[in-house]
Design a protein around this nucleic acid. Structure first.
Lengths: 254, 254
DNA sequence: CTCACCAAGTTGTATATACAGGCTAGTACA
DNA sequence: TGTACTAGCCTGTATATACAACTTGGTGAG
């Protein structure tokens, strides 16, 4: 028999659930401590602990005298962690969708063959997808997967499961290497990402190893104005909530 | 006048100080909540909050029924990669030089004050430098340093020692947080970096903590065409509070 | 000697209460 | 009209109290 979760944790789970389900959207007001006391039949200290920890973990933003609000962190991802774009978006309480542009068997050439440490002509699956956050393009995923590693890659429906989630399901990821660049996108990329002519893109080029061999090579293009990477050597004791977020809340309240 | 720190924070600072000074070593027993109640004249809930947060932040390990023990902090040290542009360039076998554009005492305003967690008007040193690799601009460093943290910051010759190297010499920089963006530079940045009109920049915004407080906030602009960030990812080991540490404690108790 | 049990100490959680301080909207007053 | 002030809500912190669960060491019964 598993012990029941503590009540403060139940409260946290409840609020996180409301955020990821979209019921509470960024900059929305979260029930105050006293409202939680009423509706959830807990003491204020318990409600306080739940909200305080959610604040420390970056889910919400608390402002003394005003209230508690759902954080709207700009599109963020952890630089040193390999993340699934769909999870990332869901965590922000937004809706993820994707559109498959290409899903075909090819022979590795040049850069791809070199990156994957295989002979030219080795079979790879080429994937080209656009990921959307609330309908807005947030990532163009240009990925090559070693066909021998993922034989059924061609039959997958990558609009219901992301390549990243699919690949980590096949075999544990052991190592990854990534390069981050700022670049001016060409017309095709601009078109897929629906960006202005002068908006740069943040490009993440990532190679991933499994069982000691590189198995996939991806080029991830993001619109510079809507996406940023965060590397987090988490500072103990300081709440995640940074200045920019507060400013953002201010703007949204007008 | 700055308000006094809350007591739970004073307790945390005290214990962190004892740990970093070496008075308390890894796997040593930390005073229990009740002992802190006695010696520090606080309520147990306050002592509990201090120790609980230290646990959440990885400084200590708490075991119900046993006590609180100092964590093995080895895992934390590898987190912070030193990003000194001069070392980076030297590592490539190239020549590093730099030009100081501004080095002045200022009062923190807006974004800077918030990022450093200080009142508006707190004195900060503003540094603006261009770093060159083989004579070519590779980074525009726009940095604010808490004046109280580095009093002689104004007298340093940052063309012979980089701010990064200087700051790590003063005190261990324990934690950092960074955000990476692609953006279109304004005319001033373009001029300093000698980039073409349509070349985007890769901007790294980094806050660095020492002894629990943010001490410096830097905005590092790089020419998109000549600079990229590389990262390496290996799967995390067992989480901080997991079995390994407990096993270690078990061993030490023999 | 061995095992069961218990007492003391520890952490984990929950509650009620209190006060301080920030923020806002509305009201009273000039 | 405009300004100053206040009531009410909010978060932030601190304390006292209570009970539960866990660990350890000792004690007593078998």
């Amino acid at each position: 028999m598993i012990p029941p979760k503590p009540r403060y944790q139940q409260l946290k789970d409840l609020i996180i659930e409301r955020i990821s389900s979209g019921e509470l959207r960024p900059s929305d007001r979260v029930p105050s401590e006293n409202e939680l006391v009423e509706s959830m039949s807990v003491s204020r200290m318990t409600a306080n602990r739940a909200l305080r920890e959610l604040n420390d973990e970056g889910y919400v933003e608390r402002i003394a005298g005003r209230g508690t609000y759902v954080s709207d962190l700009r599109a963020r991802s952890h630089l040193l962690e390999v993340h699934n774009i769909a999870d990332e978006i869901a965590l922000r309480g937004h809706l993820h969708s994707s559109r498959t542009i290409r899903q075909s068997l090819q022979k590795a050439r040049g850069e791809v063959a070199k990156a994957l440490h295989v002979e030219q002509g080795t079979e790879v699956v080429h994937l080209l997808l656009v990921h959307l956050e609330n309908g807005l393009p947030i990532q163009l995923e240009d990925r090559h997967v070693l066909a021998s590693f993922a034989p059924d890659c061609l039959d997958q429906d990558f609009e219901s499961i992301t390549p990243s989630a699919y690949l980590t399901g096949i075999a544990p990821l052991q190592e990854a290497e990534q390069v981050v660049r700022a670049s001016s996108p060409n017309a095709a990329v601009r078109n897929y990402l629906q960006t202005a002519d002068d908006e740069p893109t943040l490009v993440v080029i990532r190679r991933t190893w499994s069982r000691g061999c590189p198995v996939t090579f991806a080029r991830l293009h993001h619109p510079g104005g809507r996406y940023e990477l965060t590397g987090h050597y988490t500072p103990p004791g300081t709440p995640r909530s940074a200045s920019a977020d507060v400013v953002q809340l201010e703007k949204l309240r007008q």
